[in-house]
Design a protein around this nucleic acid. Structure first.
Lengths: 361, 361
DNA sequence: TTGTATGCGTTATCAG
DNA sequence: CTGATAACGCATACAA
């Protein structure tokens, strides 16, 4: 049925080994031999059987990217970047959606949902610091996000606290004094929500603004709908505000919708800034200011770290934590630029590479 | 190193075949034997080697989804749906981004970018009717979209003409008479742009409105930026309009941005409707009316058709073309609902299953 | 520079 | 119900 190396070898009048050599670009082959093999391949329409190669080499050329869901623009764009970065290096990406469910995230680690890939880039949302033990597995992992620190794996994250503080200070610098927060997770000590909220509080303190609990809007899932709801609640409560820091752009766009529905002018009455700098931010009305966490750099770094570890041969290197630079991009929603203009850089938080020594597997 | 069936068999004191039987849920095994094998598996932490199984069974459990890019919300949401549908059936999805480049789309078909998957769901954007020959391959394909008809493959599409006509008529029903189109591809006879433009023209005709070329806005790529540009050009030209039909939501959101920048009220002065009904549509300001092409149904159907064909044993079934129902969802941008309300169904175009008989491979 | 032989870990065939 | 054994298609040590 399917044509194999054998068939090619026979047709070209060489051994199977020579065909293999040609296919794999082994350099020491007589030009004429290579030519003969090539045409035999053409004629027969031969294509390498990846399953056989994978079995033999113990490697698949596939990596898994596990994210909550692709409908969330941040993760869609992240996936885009990861796939592109992997592609450049000759690797292919298989995507698992966890729906931020504990069970599915556990499955990803246990391998029940990691069919035949050589490594995993994992952005957990349900698992937390208590689950570090689950990360001790026999394949390379790169962790994304801020839910799990200290696991035996490389980690690409962002400087949430510093960036959130900068966003808050940016609003304060516009003269705003009643800065609301949308997207808080009450009681959580870990994760993006906690860190960004901490940055917000630091920012308030540094600006000499009091902390008013009425200005904290809860939103469990960071979707547009929950952002709109949280904003609506706060407005319905009659809470006085003149600025909003939404913990991500989806929330911000939802909040924007609610503000508009209440007839509130942005940025005239209320200034608004989000977090993630997704593509949508540029095209909302008004265009949304945001924190650019360096998504592309995150993706490239994650792929790089993972492939490095997959290809590692000798003594395991210590695990690394990398924090790309983040930027505050000012647009219309904070009155930083006029309509139709590009956003402009308002400030930069420098990250860097931090190597955390851990006994690595 | 890695533990194999052999090790398990040895530990359980049975043959390797029995282990295989247990792993694959073969029913006729003594309970006691099964138990012994199960615990051996547990003890040793055995996990099936997928590469070996794939080699043996000639199947990988993987399918490829090839789309232009995940940053485009429509494709991100489509990917989400496809992955979910595949997951339900126990299959995993590998995503290829083609950037709508001819070369990469060809690669997808040639298999150069189809590593070890059992089938392909392909949404081409660069290939066209002249490339049908490329679709004659030795693995199952399901084609999405409207660029390639008549290829030897199953096809899930949408009733573009009817839906676009309905969208246009909807604008006309609001009393609008200068209905602009954003996203046209001049000279193209095939693809979504051509079909939706045809529907627009039919709609104008049925509404008794004249066709004014000045109302046609070109936009090669359907991004927010190009939509904004096209809209801006038209406004700068001083073309009089009171409604806009954007050929997809990204264009519509870009156009919305440009309208807003020009101080034009939507829907007061200009009514706006998009196409795709992506998630963003609900949360723009004002919320965007759109055509819901039945994305989820498209994804489910595509996976279903593909798996059916992959699992097909005997005589090849004739190729089918499926057209899910599409709906017009009226929101604020056409004044169909008040702020903060859900969109409402304005009309439905019924699709259905059409079986096209083609000599199938 | 090229050929031979072996094994990667499974599943399938066929006895028993 | 279970066991021995032969593929599956490729890569690679080892020869030549």
């Amino acid at each position: 049925m399917a044509v194999t190396m054998h068939d090619v070898a026979q047709r070209a009048g060489v051994s199977i080994k020579t065909v293999s050599n040609v296919v794999n670009g082994y350099p020491y082959i007589r030009a004429e031999t290579r030519q003969r093999v090539q045409s035999a391949i053409e004629d027969l329409g031969y294509r390498v059987n990846m399953s056989a190669r994978n079995l033999r080499t113990r490697r698949t050329g596939l990596i898994t990217l596990a994210v909550p869901e692709l409908s969330l623009p941040y993760f869609a764009e992240l996936a885009d970047s990861v796939i592109s970065a992997a592609d450049t290096a000759g690797w292919t990406v298989l995507i698992e959606q966890t729906s931020a469910s504990r069970e599915r995230e556990t499955d990803v680690l246990s391998g029940r949902r990691r069919h035949l890939t050589d490594g995993l880039i994992f952005s957990p949302l349900a698992l937390g610091p208590d689950d570090i033990a689950l990360f001790t597995v026999d394949f390379p992992i790169v962790i994304l996000g801020e839910r799990v620190f200290g696991a035996p794996a490389d980690h690409v994250t962002m400087n949430n606290v510093a960036a959130a503080k900068a966003a808050t200070l940016h609003l304060a610098s516009l003269g705003r004094r009643r800065i609301a927060l949308i997207g808080a997770h009450a009681g959580e000590q870990v994760g993006s929500a906690a860190l960004r909220t901490a940055g917000y509080l630091e920012g308030l303190a540094e600006a000499g603004l009091p902390h008013d609990p009425a200005l904290i809007g809860e939103a469990g899932l960071w979707h547009r709908s929950t952002g709109a709801e949280a904003m609506r609640r706060m407005l319905d409560d009659g809470t006085e505000i003149d600025a909003v820091f939404a913990l991500n752009d989806a929330l911000a766009l939802g909040a924007l919708h609610a503000l508009h529905a209440h007839g509130i002018d942005v940025p005239g009455q209320v200034a608004l800034i989000g977090f993630d700098d997704v593509d949508d931010a540029k095209y909302s009305v008004p265009a949304l200011s945001s924190v650019d966490p360096g998504r592309d750099q995150i993706a490239r770094t994650a792929v790089e770290l993972l492939l490095e570890r997959i290809g590692a041969t000798g003594d395991p290197a210590p695990f690394r934590r990398v924090v790309p630079d983040s930027r505050i991009v000012g647009r219309e929603s904070t009155g930083d630029v006029a309509q139709g203009q590009e956003g402009r850089l308002v400030s930069v938080q420098e990250g860097g590479i931090e190597t955390v020594e851990v006994a690595s597997g």
